[in-house]
Design a binder for these strands. Structure first.
Lengths: 241, 241
DNA sequence: GCAAAAGTGTTTACCCTACACCCATGT
DNA sequence: ACATGGGTGTAGGGTAAACACTTTTGC
């Protein structure tokens, strides 16, 4: 990771991204784990270049982690408390990694820059999990999809940021018709329903759900999907536009 | 106005406030006009001190304009386009005010600071218009309530910011029960209805509206209000909690 | 008593839910 | 044929809009 200690970036403003994916009836979030002792997880984040808009910056950060260019994203909240700084986390990290050679990469100036108070703009993104090739940065030990219901404890306020993102996702899901970003090109109605159930963490009635979704008039019915199972083959659907 | 050219403030981040008030069946916005030739209107705005949160900063800015301490406010959006700068506006202002003595107050360094690209956090506030004592800053020629439907053309993207604020207000009005912030301590049902009609710019049915509002169970019915008019006296209500 | 405007009740329509039934598919 | 799961139709309940009527107030 390029350490942004100069004026290329807007000072004291960061972007934190909650990347939602969906797989096997579970809503998931893509979270990197830092390559330091101490088990630190942190949301994908970054800074805003002087010549790019906040949305562009989020897109750049998201593409860097998922490889996806045309990603669905939305800004959902600013986290700007006065005491919002990564200093406690960084101190703990350094304390636990004193013997490590990595500590040397923090020089005093960079450390000072990174521990200042930061205002963070929260973005959430919805991706087809099958299209994502999670990209581990140098600083990461791993980057993985975590079930939303069993996320690790992350640094700073990142767990709260995910909470807020999920809340916004829920309230935007119906009015903005964005759920289909989490599904592959074609899908069955049952898959849509299970996705909704994962997001809202509650069951829906099968027939009524189908009616509700089809009444949106945004789905095109395709051929049936023969799975080999001993039951009626479900139709495949495609999201229009 | 203290020109914030030092490190007291977070660089390149501003706060723009849309202050909503309500009077005589009209939804209004409090907008200062700058004391320069050229008719420049600009939303109340300011910057974030290093030691204060964004909400606190918005509160400070809002109190400075309205005199109200316990103001209802909500962050609603970040405006962070790459080209978002006040440079064109400031150049036009200076061009139109060359002969004025005021131009001298812009020294080169301050001008450079103010024309950088700024990310703005949009806040909207709801106030009882009767409690507000609009406070004109030194830099202002006036500060006035403008009908939302006949706002002046403001600088930069400020008209769009108001649009966004209104949109958010509409979608939050029911679920957050915030409309009563715009009314005085006691009010009649008709006043609530007219407020809703002003916000949504559409009529509501009288009896159904009353039922809907009373079913919220947040209003206390007080004595009747005798206006002297030749008709049944309406009840007064007070918002609970 | 009457006009004006507030309060309240009633009917209607619509939408969401629940229940039921039918259909296709592979063993 | 039958079990499994998908598709569709219909009746019930609750909510909200539309309509109607009653009450209060000052002249």
């Amino acid at each position: 990771m390029h350490l942004p200690s100069e004026q290329d970036y807007i000072q004291q403003v960061s972007i934190d991204c909650v990347i939602f994916g969906y797989q096997e009836t579970q809503l998931k979030v893509l979270v990197p784990k830092l390559a330091f002792k101490g088990d630190f997880w942190a949301l994908p984040s970054g800074f805003i270049l002087q010549q790019e808009g906040t949305d562009q910056a989020a897109r750049r950060i998201l593409e860097g982690r998922t490889g996806i260019k045309n990603i669905y994203l939305e800004q959902f909240r600013v986290f700007g408390d006065a005491g919002r700084t990564s200093a406690p986390f960084l101190e703990r990290l350094i304390e636990l990694n004193q013997e490590s050679s990595r500590e040397k990469q923090f020089n005093r100036k960079e450390f000072e820059w990174m521990t200042r108070r930061f205002i963070s703009i929260g973005y959430y993104a919805l991706v087809d999990i099958n299209e994502v090739v999670p990209n581990k940065h140098d600083i990461d030990e791993s980057i993985e999809w975590y079930n939303i219901k069993s996320l690790p404890t992350m640094i700073m306020d990142h767990n709260q940021i995910v909470e807020q993102a999920l809340e916004t996702l829920r309230s935007n899901l119906d009015k903005k018709l964005i759920a289909f970003n989490l599904l592959p090109e074609t899908f069955t109605m049952m898959e849509v329903q299970q996705l909704y159930e994962a997001i809202f963490d509650k069951p829906f009635a099968r027939n009524n759900f189908q009616k509700k979704i089809l009444d949106l008039n945004v789905l095109e019915r395709l051929e049936k999907k023969f799975t080999g199972a001993a039951n009626k083959a479900p139709y495949l659907y495609r999201f229009l536009k």
